[in-house]
Design a protein around this nucleic acid. Structure first.
Lengths: 211, 211
DNA sequence: CTGTGATCGGAACGTCGTCCCATTTCATCG
DNA sequence: CGATGAAATGGGACGACGTTCCGATCACAG
């Protein structure tokens, strides 16, 4: 019953998160119990409380791993330098990830910290890193002196793609459209409108769209 | 212990959903337990199982009420006939709703039926009704013979707005941009690009858009 | 070899969803 | 009016959950 030297503390940490990932991939948040994770790695449930403060923190770390995996997937996509093509390539990679790891990706949004506690900084940085990938695609469209607009544009596109994935995985956008087609339409026309309005010196308002 | 005629079955149904709504508004999904709902309306927890199959079905009905409330809010917004203005008015109404009823709106997406069971038809119809509001805004942009493109456009915008709300309420889009500004940018430029591409006969939105 | 501190297993507690059933009440019929 | 059956209600029971706690046990320093 006492101390076992089967695994180091770090190994245990990894084993727990790995087991949690497998359970979440299979049964989602509902099946992700402390006791089941502990059973899967051959330890008692009390032991997990030596590694994590509570269930929330465990899931937070699992979500961190999911964000890392998404970043690894997207950052491996080759960029061509064409904003439209590159954004769509990222979108396709994103969609593929949310489909292959649907339950894991859903966990990112199903799980909340209680009392509207803010997420830790390292979590926000993982998100910012993902947004940075989109941001870089837009470099050719915006000069280096227009960083704020570029970031704004990246956020609009990122949020929009997120919404498409969210509604698709929950099957709440029927009759189902192809989200690939939706993303294509979004990128082509949104960037098209953006190019037109900035080319004519307007402020985001395309000419001829006034009341 | 026995039958009470304090309330009819329908009254009980309404009382339960109303109590559930108040609890969800305060404590979200975590606090939404059968026992707490029952306690709030002065009945035992067993009684709720005469009204609902299980917790999932209760939440499903609560979510239905939330969709109804959202529809009532949005359909009361006066329309001008200008697609840009009307879509933005709907977006602002949507944003206001998701902020005022944040926990209730989150419940729409935190809660899943197990085993990827499809949502009931009446639920899908409530969503379709909301989408219809966006669809009607786009009437001036698309002739009556281009219904498919119009619906496609409505879905792109609806999904995008949803993504913005989703990331905002979860504070997962920091540093926070104003989603009102994001929505304005989206609608102006996306519709602008759409107008430009269709005016030039390009295929920004191919009819029957498939790969 | 001995002490000490970290680590582990598992009991305990309160809560949960769900099932079950004796009990009570209402509506209907004789 | 009184009996009868159906519907509804309260609450016990069960297994599972998150979390806390503590005695038992082991690794390691001295």
């Amino acid at each position: 019953m006492g101390r076992r030297s089967d695994h180091s503390r770090d190994e245990l940490f990894e084993m727990a998160l790995s087991a949690a990932r497998e359970i979440a991939e299979e049964d989602g948040l509902k099946g992700l119990t402390i006791r089941r994770i502990a059973g899967k790695i051959g330890y008692s449930h009390g032991t997990l409380y030596n590694l994590f403060d509570d269930q929330d923190e465990l899931i937070l770390h699992l979500n961190g791993r999911t964000l890392d995996a998404l970043y690894d997937t997207l950052s491996a996509i080759p960029m061509t330098g064409d904003p439209d093509d590159d954004l769509l390539a990222l979108a396709r990679g994103y969609f593929a990830f949310t489909r292959d790891s649907a339950k894991l990706w859903n966990l990112l949004f199903e799980h909340h910290l209680s009392d509207h506690q803010p997420l830790p900084d390292w979590h926000h940085q993982k998100i910012a890193r993902l947004l940075g990938l989109m941001d870089r695609c837009l470099d050719p469209l915006f000069g280096p002196e227009r960083d704020a607009e570029k970031l704004h544009t990246a956020r609009v596109i990122w949020s929009s793609l997120h919404g498409m994935c969210s509604l698709e995985t929950q099957r709440k956008l029927i009759p189902a459209d192809s989200i690939e087609a939706m993303a294509t339409s979004l990128v082509k026309n949104y960037l098209g409108g953006l190019r037109a309005s900035t080319a004519e010196g307007a402020d985001g308002v395309p000419p001829g769209s006034g009341p």
